[in-house]
Design a protein around this nucleic acid. Structure first.
Lengths: 168, 168
DNA sequence: AAATGACATGTCGTTTCTTACATGTCAACC
DNA sequence: GGTTGACATGTAAGAAACGACATGTCATTT
């Protein structure tokens, strides 16, 4: 059950409302896990009942800001360090890329082009994020993770360009 | 619904039994999609009812070998080329890697070590596969995909080594 | 002759996820 | 004063996925 641990992780970084968590899943966690608000709100309620998170403040528009509790931190650490990692993945783009050689050259070219545009946009976003982090005074402990994202996307971009150049 | 298209894709490469598909998901598609036999058999039955696959032969132990039909190929092509790709991912390892900076140095080191061992094994497997393909007479249309897998895993391996070297 | 283990196909209950429905708050603009 | 749009939180039905249960085949080994 990664959803709960992803939520715990985001709350360990900073207290958030369900609405903010939804946006964070869509931004920082986009390339690793997806969750919509209809999953997040019920899960927050469950986590609260289990004592792993708590409401730390209430704001405008009925918003509730949740924070992680000590036992939440313990659970998160256990999952990250002790638990056997589940390496299985669900990545539709990966399936597509894997099956692309089945297509005739014209279709193959079109899908590689489409993927290339997407990766380039992705890379631009990550590079901008890196620039922001570098320019800021605050040390950013997640900088290496940004760097990894850039490197992986660069490899994919270059590979796609090669395929297009080689009539792939 | 990627499962059905992943199955169609595997059957487009070569006719297979449900049992063989289960192993193929676990081998070639492991890094992109996971499915167990309890999903595969019912899905094959659905695909057959929909006329996208058909039983092409029956063998020992009640086994049924399925092949893709023309309308299955059409559906597969449509999904690969025309349909709007779903870029959302589910990758527990990615979530872990993303959250690792929350850990203290000792725990962080331990998890990076664990991930490094895993990536190294993965890489060995891929490099062996590439060597087999290179040694074989048959041209392998999926060679570039193997190459991409190697490059991505190499980037991750090097990044993990850097983190370990920098006391990360 | 019996046991083992890979091959082979299925079902079932529970959990997880998606999509759509539903409601309400607040600031800014027209 | 009304509209728009971002903010904000929920529920519910149905689909997909997981883990456990269940059954049987066949070749090899003991």
């Amino acid at each position: 059950m990664s959803l709960r641990h992803a939520i715990l992780g985001l709350l360990a970084r900073s207290p958030s409302t369900g609405y903010e968590l939804t946006r964070k899943f869509d931004r920082s966690l986009r390339t690793s896990w997806h969750a919509s608000h209809s999953q997040i709100y019920p899960e927050l309620a469950k986590l609260e009942r289990a004592g792993l998170v708590e409401v730390v403040s209430r704001g405008a528009r009925r918003s509730k800001t949740y924070g992680i509790t000590d036992s939440g931190r313990e659970e998160l650490r256990h999952w990250l360090v002790e638990a056997e990692p589940d390496r299985s993945q669900r990545n539709e783009s990966g399936v597509r890329l894997f099956l692309t050689p089945l297509l005739d050259p014209a279709d193959r070219h079109a899908t590689y082009e489409r993927d290339l545009s997407h990766v380039e946009v992705e890379l631009d976003g990550l590079e901008e994020l890196r620039a922001q982090v570098n320019a800021s005074e605050m040390p950013e402990p997640f900088a290496p993770q940004i760097e990894l994202g850039i490197r992986i996307n660069t490899v994919i971009r270059d590979w796609l360009r090669e395929q297009l150049d080689n009539g792939g």
